[in-house]
Lab assay of single mutants.
Amino acid sequence: KRPMNAFMVWAQAARRKLADQYPHLHNAELSKTLGKLWRLLSESEKRPFVEEAERLRVQHKKDHPDYK
């Protein structure tokens, strides 16, 4: 399984919050909304998630050196 990218790291927590706020939204609508919200974030707001995704990528490479 591939490591999560920055969006997926962020969306993991954001999806729970959004689903709690809008329990009537279908998963497809949640995903579209999350995409729009992510694009509205500034680079500095995204930075911690980009850094975490990079950490996960490096760890994955270490754990699975033959993964392509």
Rank of each mutant, 00 (worst) to 15 (best):
Q12A: 05
R2Q: 01
M4W: 13
E43K: 15
Y22H: 04
E54P: 09
V58M: 09
F49W: 04
V50H: 05
Y22R: 13
V9C: 14
H24L: 07
R47W: 02
Q21A: 11
L25A: 03
L34S: 00
F49P: 11
M4Q: 08
Y22S: 13
L34E: 01
F7E: 01
H60M: 07
K36T: 03
G35Y: 02
A13R: 07
H60Q: 13
L56C: 12
R57P: 08
R2D: 06
F7T: 00
Q21N: 05
G35E: 13
W38N: 00
M8G: 11
E29C: 15
K1H: 08
R16S: 05
H26S: 15
N5M: 00
A14K: 08
L37Y: 06
K62L: 08
A14H: 11
S42C: 04
Q59T: 13
V50K: 08
K36G: 04
S31M: 04
F49S: 13
W10L: 01
N5T: 10
P3W: 08
R57K: 12
E45H: 04
D20N: 05
W10N: 00
K17F: 03
A11Y: 03
W10E: 00
P48V: 03
L18G: 00
M4K: 13
L18D: 00
E51R: 07
S44L: 05
K36C: 01
A28G: 09
S44D: 10
L40S: 15
K61I: 10
A14Y: 11
F49V: 14
H26A: 13
R39Y: 00
P23V: 11
L40P: 00
V50T: 10
A11G: 04
K61G: 11
L18Q: 00
N27F: 14
V58S: 10
A14C: 01
S44M: 05
L41W: 06
E43S: 13
D20F: 05
D63V: 08
V50G: 11
L25G: 02
A53N: 05
K17T: 01
Q21V: 06
A53Q: 07
L30Y: 04
K17P: 00
L37R: 11
L37A: 12
P65T: 08
L25D: 01
P3D: 03
K62R: 09
L30P: 04
A11I: 03
M4D: 07
F7N: 00
S44G: 10
G35N: 10
P23L: 11
R55M: 12
V50L: 06
K1Y: 01
K62H: 05
K17C: 13
R57N: 11
Q21K: 14
A6E: 01
Q12E: 07
R16C: 08
A19W: 06
N27V: 13
W38V: 06
L56G: 13
A13P: 01
M8W: 13
K1M: 03
V9E: 15
R47D: 09
P23M: 13
F49E: 14
T33S: 06
M4E: 07
R57W: 04
A53W: 04
A13E: 15
F49Q: 13
R47H: 03
M8H: 11
N27G: 14
M4V: 07
A14F: 06
E45Y: 06
K17V: 03
K61F: 04
L25R: 01
R15M: 06
E45V: 15
K68G: 02
V58L: 09
E51M: 04
A13I: 04
W10Q: 00
E54C: 08
S44T: 07
A14E: 15
R57Y: 04
R16Q: 11
R57Q: 10
Q59D: 07
L25N: 04
D20P: 01
H60A: 11
H26R: 13
W10M: 00
D20Y: 04
E45T: 14
N5Y: 07
R39F: 02
Q12N: 04
K46P: 06
L56K: 12
F49N: 14
G35D: 11
R39M: 07
S44H: 07
H64C: 06
K1W: 03
K46F: 03
L41E: 01
Q21I: 12
Q12L: 01
W10F: 00
Y22F: 13
F49C: 09
H64G: 10
V9D: 07
Q59R: 05
R39W: 02
L41H: 05
R15S: 01
S44P: 09
E29D: 06
L37F: 09
S31Y: 01
L30H: 02
N5S: 06
W10T: 00
A53Y: 05
A19L: 13
S44W: 08
E43R: 15
L30A: 06
R55D: 13
L34G: 01
A53R: 11
